[in-house]
Structures are given as C-alpha cells and as structure tokens.
C-alpha cells in the first residue's frame, strides 16, 4: 500500500501503436516509482462507466506514466481517443510487481499474449538495461496488425513474434506455446513468466508443469476497487483455505501459490 496515489492524470500524448491500440502518456504526481507488473485503476470519465479500469503500467518516468490501451469496450474506446489535455482519475501504482530473484536473475522466458505484453515488456527492458538478465521474450498476437511493433522494438534483444494468421518472413505462424516449448528445450532450467488471455496462460502453465519449470503468472480479473476492499477479484489460494486478491496480493503470483488449473496444452 505505501506510495500509491489518487488524483487526476493529464494526457500528454496519445500514440497509435497497433490496430485499436494506443499508448497514453500521462502526467501524474505519484509518491513513488512504479515497478513492472503493477497497474493503475483509470477512470474513463464517462457517466456510463461506474468503475475505474485496471491497466498495467508500461513505463514510468518522473511525473509521467505510460499505459497501453487496446479497445475492448466502451471505457477503453473512450480512453483510446483521449487528446492531450484530457484528464482522467488515476489510482496507482497498485498490486505486486515481478520480484522473484529466480525470475529476475535468469535464465528466463517471458510469454505474452495481447495486452499481456505490457508488464513483461517493461520488465524485460528494465532487466536488460541494468545488465541483470536478458529474458527470452515471446509474444503472440492474432494477426500482424495486432502487434504493437513500435513498442516491442524498444527491447533490443527483440521479441520472438507469433501470429495465428497472416505470417510474414519475420513472423512465425502458430501459438506462443510452440515458441515456449522450443525455448524450454534450448534452455532447461529457465524460469517462466506469462501474461495474457487466461486460456493462453493455462496452456503455458500446463507446459511448465510438464517441464518442471517454475512459473509466475500476471492475472486478469474483473475488479471493483483495485485495493483489496470489494473482494471482487479473488482466486483461491493453493490450499484453498483462503482467497487471494488479484488486485492487492497479485496480479503477479507464483503459480504454485494459487489454484490456477492448467489446461491441456495445444
């Protein structure tokens, strides 16, 4: 809880980065530095949106914050057309970051799908630029138009890119899980982090279980408050004797700490 802030954030820039996807750069005075994996609750400031929406933090500089928004409904649609000078209520940074030494020191493999790339991209850049480790990064999108290429190239070692449809020379066709299997064979003992659609993360969990690779997941759940108060976002602990809040105890969890049923890998 220490170091979060609640206040109005002013849009400084809105940059299109993929189909229906923008990066908003916002001016906000936060009492602390955010870390990769943390998110902010941002209110779209329209009366038919009661709740604020959770968005992972893509980057954080002094007094400035970047979030990446993919249009998914009415709130994100409004936010994606925000103009410089527009204001939105922002509460953050919230939640736990990726902080397990095993993951940060490498060797590690990051598997992202869709907007799940946001926390992992920041983490990978941060680790690489500080010389701590260089994660093998794998990203999957539906088609080439869904890849936020301008963002992904900021990670110098590069992202291995997979699309389900319309692959070109530099892209592989298929699912990120194929990339993960290959990477695990090449780097036995690697730790894995994943963020993306739940079916994808469950498939990743199944592969990691099979390969005995430690896995950290960054979960998505409908949120009311973002602060552990409303108990909307809970998931059972591994032992089932308590509920863990995705917003406060997560969104990053060691998969061994929670009940995250692994799906059959495809």
């Amino acid at each position: 809880m220490p170091g979060r802030g609640l206040g109005m954030a002013r849009v400084l820039a809105n940059t299109g980065v993929a189909r229906d996807t923008v990066v908003l750069t916002m001016a906000i005075d936060l009492p602390t530095q955010a870390r990769p994996g943390q998110f902010a609750m941002v209110h779209p400031m329209r009366t038919d949106c009661l709740l604020a929406r959770p968005f992972s933090i893509l980057d954080h500089r002094d007094g400035e914050l970047d979030i990446l928004i993919k249009v998914a409904g009415k709130g994100s649609a409004s936010m994606a057309v925000a103009r410089p000078g527009d204001e939105m209520r922002l509460f953050g940074p919230l939640g736990q970051s990726f902080d397990a030494p095993r993951l940060l020191d490498g060797p590690s493999i990051f598997v992202a799908g869709g907007v799940g790339v946001v926390p992992l991209h920041w983490l990978a850049r941060d680790l690489h630029s500080r010389g701590r480790s260089t994660p093998h990064c794998i990203f999957g999108g539906r088609t080439p138009a869904d890849l936020p290429t301008a963002v992904l190239t900021q990670y110098e070692p590069g992202w291995e890119l997979w699309v389900e449809d319309g692959a070109t020379e530099s892209l592989e066709t298929g699912r990120v899980t194929h990339g993960l299997q290959r990477a695990l064979e090449a780097t036995p003992g690697a730790a894995v982090a994943t963020c993306g659609p739940t079916p994808m993360m469950k498939a990743v969990a199944a592969i990691c279980e099979e390969a005995d690779a430690p896995l950290w997941v960054c979960l998505e759940e409908q949120m009311g408050c973002g602060a552990g108060v409303c108990r909307a976002c809970v998931i059972p602990s591994a032992s089932g004797d308590r509920m863990c809040t995705v917003c406060k105890e997560g969104p990053v969890f060691a998969v061994s700490d929670i009940q995250f049923g692994a799906a059959v890998a495809s």
Binding site: T47, D48, C49, L50, L51, E221, Q222, G224, C230, R231, A232, C233, V234, I235, P236, R242, M243
Partner: peptide
C-alpha cells in the same frame, strides 16, 4: 467465510451487480 465463486461483480451501465457472498 470464503464467499462465492467467480464471477463476483459485473458492471452495468449505471450500477453494479455483486455476488460476493459475505467473504
């Protein structure tokens, strides 16, 4: 109390439906 299974809240245009189950 552990409360109910997911989903627990659903936003409506001007309100909220909840089924927390007294966790």
């Amino acid at each position: 109390r552990l409360g109910n299974t997911q989903p627990r809240v659903r936003e409506q245009p001007h309100g909220l439906l909840n089924s927390i189950g007294l966790e």
